[in-house]
Every structure is written in C-alpha cells, then in structure tokens.
C-alpha cells in the first residue's frame, strides 16, 4: 500500500495580522481575562555570514584542491591522523604534514534519510568513516557509488578510493570516496 501523506505540511510563515483581538474596554474583569489569551508568536529572521579561518589546518584544503589528501603525523612516535591536527594529543608536539593513501576501507557508515536543514535537499546521502593502512584515526566523508536503499553491513570493510571535486568548494567534501 502506498504511504500517502494525510497532512499538509506546516510552515512558519503566515499572514500579517493588522488587528489583534483585544478587549474594547479595560476593567478588572477584562484585564483578568487576558490571563486566558493565547500566545502571540512572531517570526524572527537570524542570518549571519561568518569569516571562518581554517588557520593551521589550511594546507589540508589547499591539498584537496590539488587532489592531494593530507594528514598529520607526530614525527617522534609516527602516530598519524587522518584529520588535520597541528599538535599531537599524546606528546603535545607539533605534527608534520604527510600525504595519506588515496585508498582505504569503510569502517562505519549510515544512510541519512533526514538531516539538518542545509542538507535536506541531498537526502538520502551516505556518511562513512574511512580507515587507512598506516593511519591511526578515521576520516569522515561522503560515500558515493552504492545504492542508499540497499544499505548493508557488508559495506563495512569495503575497499574505497578517494575522488576529488573538480571545482573545489574549500570544504572537507572536496574529497569523497567510491568503491575501489
């Protein structure tokens, strides 16, 4: 049976009201009645443009625009992060940039059928954590090339390879992964 919608979607917007009902005469009785008035709700817009700096992590994004996947490594211990990290969390030492492998395996994943407002138009989309040989941490990414309606635990362990957006957006999604 088809799962047909039975309710019309609600939106926040509404008509501008030019006259709110209010007692025409104010006295003890009508003032007391105001306690039973339903609340007035108005719409407030809140919009901001931030100038966000990637700071010491900036080379990671520069790398993606050049189809290079960079990570960070503690020079003494060799502990390697798949995400940029200026200092190692165990030694406190400054890390060095290293080139990460372009191939890895799916460590965990999900198919998002719902999401935050910004990503609703992209539903369903697949989030995945990727593991890499010789790298101690994981990388959060989008997984493409598998059917969202055929999610399976068998995807975990699947070999995947990096693909890069031709037109960089300077976001971590400039790299994504597909089955190798």
């Amino acid at each position: 049976m088809l799962n047909l919608p039975t309710r019309r979607p609600e939106t926040m917007g509404g008509y501008i009201v030019h006259n709110i009902p209010f007692p025409t005469a104010l006295n003890e009785q009508t003032l007391a009645l105001l306690k039973h008035m339903s609340p007035i709700q108005i719409e407030q817009v809140y919009q901001i443009n931030y100038l966000h700096s990637y700071g010491q992590d900036s080379p990671f994004f520069a790398g993606l625009t050049n189809e290079v996947f960079l990570g960070c490594r503690d020079p003494k211990t060799g502990y390697t992060y798949a995400n940029p990290r200026g200092h190692d969390m165990y030694t406190g030492d400054e890390t060095q940039w290293v080139v990460l492998p372009n191939e890895g395996a799916v460590h965990a994943f999900t198919v998002c059928h719902f999401g935050s407002e910004e990503f609703l138009p992209e539903c369903p989309y697949i989030l995945a954590l990727i593991e890499f040989e010789g790298v101690n941490t994981l990388f959060l990414t989008r997984l493409m090339g598998v059917a969202p309606n055929r999610a399976s635990l068998d995807w975990i362990g699947m070999k995947v390879k990096a693909e890069y957006l031709r037109n960089s957006k300077l976001r971590p999604t400039d790299v994504y992964f597909v089955p190798a």
Binding site: T110, C112, F114, S116, F119, L127, A128, R142, P172
Partner: peptide, 13 residues
C-alpha cells in the same frame, strides 16, 4: 560540512 546530523553520527556508531 560533510552532512552534519547527529542521528547520522550515532547511526555510524
């Protein structure tokens, strides 16, 4: 930016 959604994060776990 990858698709921020807490239910997605927990689903991966």
């Amino acid at each position: 930016p990858v698709g921020g959604f807490y239910s997605g994060y927990y689903a991966m776990m």
